[in-house]
Computed example of a mutant assay.
Amino acid sequence: MNPKIKNIMKKSFNIMLIGLALSIVFVPEVKAYAQQGLMKLGFFQPKLELPAEITGNANEPKLVKESNFKMSFVDAKGKSLSLEELKGKVVFMNIWATWCGPCIAEMPSIQKLYDKFKDKEDVAFVILEAESNKDKAVKFMTNKKLDLPVYFPIGNIPSEFFRGSLPTTVIFDKNGNVAHITEGMADYSGDDIVDFLNEVRNMK
């Protein structure tokens, strides 16, 4: 092969690699696609542990009692709801944003989990768009063909369970205590999270 042509091909390949790398870093959809591929390989599994009060194991995380369960939010149609109204149910809350690549990546797995529990009267899902961008959130769900229950916070999200990391997933027990928190992306399509939610449902 002509050395000049070979050099041009090498430069073109390097430019393509740089372009792909920049896309993964700066384009949420591309980044999400790459992260979903890693999920399929078994990465990003949530670390699920029942609180020490339940298991009796001092090495387990402690149950966060008396969390700010008076937080309120509103759905896309303007109907308000509070966590306090959801007492008596296990609440799976996912805090996300439309521009967040890891949030986008994990959303299909949350849909799969939701499909397994949406008919359970003692389980509620709150998919909380952190920036209250209703139009973008609704458009995102429509484009992705997701039917998750999306809400928008009224006021600040309590720091007891949200420190600003997106995505953050919080599971509340039926008494309003924080039974689990995951900061960062995770795959919620597996059996482990189903078993965990059922364990929390059976907590007294």
Score class of each variant (00 low, 15 high):
residue 133 N to H: 07
residue 81 L to K: 15
residue 42 G to R: 12
residue 138 V to S: 11
residue 81 L to F: 08
residue 99 W to M: 08
residue 38 L to N: 13
residue 77 K to Y: 06
residue 201 R to K: 15
residue 180 H to K: 14
residue 169 T to M: 08
residue 2 N to S: 13
residue 148 L to M: 03
residue 44 F to E: 10
residue 29 E to C: 05
residue 23 S to E: 00
residue 142 T to S: 14
residue 47 K to Y: 13
residue 54 I to D: 08
residue 114 Y to P: 11
residue 117 F to M: 06
residue 139 K to N: 12
residue 173 D to T: 10
residue 64 V to W: 01
residue 2 N to F: 04
residue 7 N to E: 03
residue 188 Y to I: 08
residue 79 K to Y: 07
residue 10 K to I: 09
residue 102 P to K: 04
residue 201 R to I: 09
residue 195 D to Q: 13
residue 23 S to G: 13
residue 117 F to L: 08
residue 6 K to P: 02
residue 43 F to R: 14
residue 15 I to P: 05
residue 182 T to A: 12
residue 68 N to C: 01
residue 166 L to H: 00
residue 44 F to K: 13
residue 178 V to Q: 05
residue 119 D to V: 01
residue 98 T to F: 05
residue 185 M to D: 03
residue 48 L to G: 14
residue 198 N to F: 03
residue 22 L to S: 11
residue 152 F to A: 08
residue 48 L to I: 12
residue 194 V to Q: 08
residue 87 K to Y: 04
residue 133 N to S: 07
residue 40 K to S: 14
residue 62 K to L: 12
residue 25 V to W: 04
residue 156 N to A: 14
residue 27 V to R: 11
residue 109 S to W: 01
residue 16 M to T: 06
residue 75 D to P: 15
residue 193 I to A: 08
residue 97 A to K: 01
residue 198 N to L: 12
residue 6 K to L: 10
residue 173 D to P: 14
residue 19 G to C: 11
residue 183 E to D: 03
residue 192 D to S: 15
residue 94 N to V: 03
residue 86 L to V: 06
residue 157 I to E: 00
residue 62 K to Q: 12
residue 117 F to P: 08
residue 148 L to A: 02
residue 186 A to D: 05
residue 53 E to I: 07
residue 110 I to A: 09
residue 92 F to S: 10
residue 150 V to R: 02
residue 189 S to E: 07
residue 145 K to F: 01
residue 89 K to G: 01
residue 100 C to M: 02
residue 170 V to H: 05
residue 35 Q to W: 01
residue 193 I to R: 10
residue 148 L to I: 04
residue 14 N to E: 09
residue 14 N to L: 13
residue 45 Q to F: 04
residue 204 K to Q: 11
residue 147 D to Q: 09
residue 113 L to R: 09
residue 43 F to V: 09
residue 97 A to Y: 02
residue 4 K to S: 11
residue 104 I to P: 10
residue 76 A to I: 04
residue 166 L to Y: 07
residue 31 K to E: 07
residue 22 L to H: 05
residue 194 V to H: 07
residue 43 F to C: 14
residue 72 S to H: 04
residue 13 F to D: 00
residue 80 S to D: 07
residue 23 S to V: 02
residue 78 G to W: 05
residue 107 M to R: 04
residue 63 L to G: 08
residue 169 T to S: 15
residue 56 G to R: 08
residue 40 K to A: 15
residue 194 V to G: 05
residue 59 N to L: 15
residue 49 E to M: 15
residue 83 L to Y: 09
residue 106 E to N: 02
residue 177 N to S: 15
residue 186 A to M: 10
residue 76 A to L: 05
residue 166 L to V: 00
residue 199 E to F: 01
residue 83 L to G: 14
residue 190 G to N: 15
residue 98 T to H: 11
residue 200 V to K: 07
